[in-house]
Design a protein around this nucleic acid. Sequence first.
DNA 1: TCGTTTCGAGACGCATACGTTTCGGAGAGA
DNA 2: TCTCTCCGAAACGTATGCGTCTCGAAACGA
Lengths: 198, 198
Amino acid sequence: MVDVGSATGVVAELDPRVERSRRVILEAVLDELGEAGYGALTIEAVAARAGVGKSTIYRHWPGKLELVEDAFRTLKASVEIPDEGTLHDRVVAVIEQVACLVAQSTYSACMPALIDAAERDPKVRDFHCRFSAERRASLVGLLREGIEAGELAPTVDPELLADALVGPILLRRLMLGQPVGPEVARELVDQLLPVTGD
Amino acid sequence: MVDVGSATGVVAELDPRVERSRRVILEAVLDELGEAGYGALTIEAVAARAGVGKSTIYRHWPGKLELVEDAFRTLKASVEIPDEGTLHDRVVAVIEQVACLVAQSTYSACMPALIDAAERDPKVRDFHCRFSAERRASLVGLLREGIEAGELAPTVDPELLADALVGPILLRRLMLGQPVGPEVARELVDQLLPVTGD
DNA sequence: TCGTTTCGAGACGCATACGTTTCGGAGAGA
DNA sequence: TCTCTCCGAAACGTATGCGTCTCGAAACGA
């Protein structure tokens, strides 16, 4: 019942039953969000899908909002920046990851629900924006490196360029119903990255 | 009660009471969608907001889905293509309109709900995608003109470029919580439009 | 004027979800 | 083994929304 901070700063659950309950419940929340969305999400549906009693959910969370927040926090949607290669190739690798993430992943399935929930509740909005901004920052950083290394013209606005690379992927997924595959990443970079020299 | 096709092909409601009821109800639906979203939208809330009885709603629509579809159809979100000016200026004008539309409009308020609803129901999805595709097509057409007129390099993919111009606006509105003003339109076009010659 | 149509209001039975509570069973840990 | 904790199930009363129905008032339009 009580969390214990270990010497490493990691918080460990004493009872494995609690850990297991929290895990299956949060998984069920993400599944429900993908299917029903935020507005139509019910605690009863989550409990049924997770195979737990409602009381177990209310034992660990005060309500729907906190439950959904915790579930979103478990989403894995990080992007890895490759160390080697030309700027062009490194950017392509990043955009490929973004395309895969947006085309098929738990994150992708929950994206519409997340966008909708962010519009309704300030807490979710904060989380969602910070979540997106973190990934964006890594791409912006990569582009900044390129400018400093002289591979990109100094007139380039790295934030605008980052959004221009990622924006179309979102647009096609959310507005056009045509999620793009990773093969489009190279086209995007070829068209939009104003490389200097070669 | 009966629609009459006039000589001009316009369908007119005989009874002004019906016309008025439908109008205030559909307005209320859009307001509710902006506030509550699609999943949490209820007929009762729409009726209360519109100041009509529930029976009046059920008299004109079979259920929530058709009601929402009709409401979305009343959304004005068209983009006008200017006739004169350089390609650069014409594209700027279009992107400015898009930015205004996405920053503040009934359409903007309903966008998260529309995206969420499209994910849940195929009918809404069809409508939403066609709706988005129509606006996209007008910008793509403008870019194609530019290519044919030699103002844009023939290597440009007009659809990709159109998405690269509009995508960032959506990304900042939906993912970053930073809707952009029309002043960003010029920056976008300056950075992304690969004009030939001048 | 007068019959017709639509209206708002509200009651209806039904279904679902809320959040709380109780209780017997089972797993954890000493 | 034995105690303590957490569990799932289910029942609880309440609240809300569903879709239907009825009714008297008001507006339409001929």
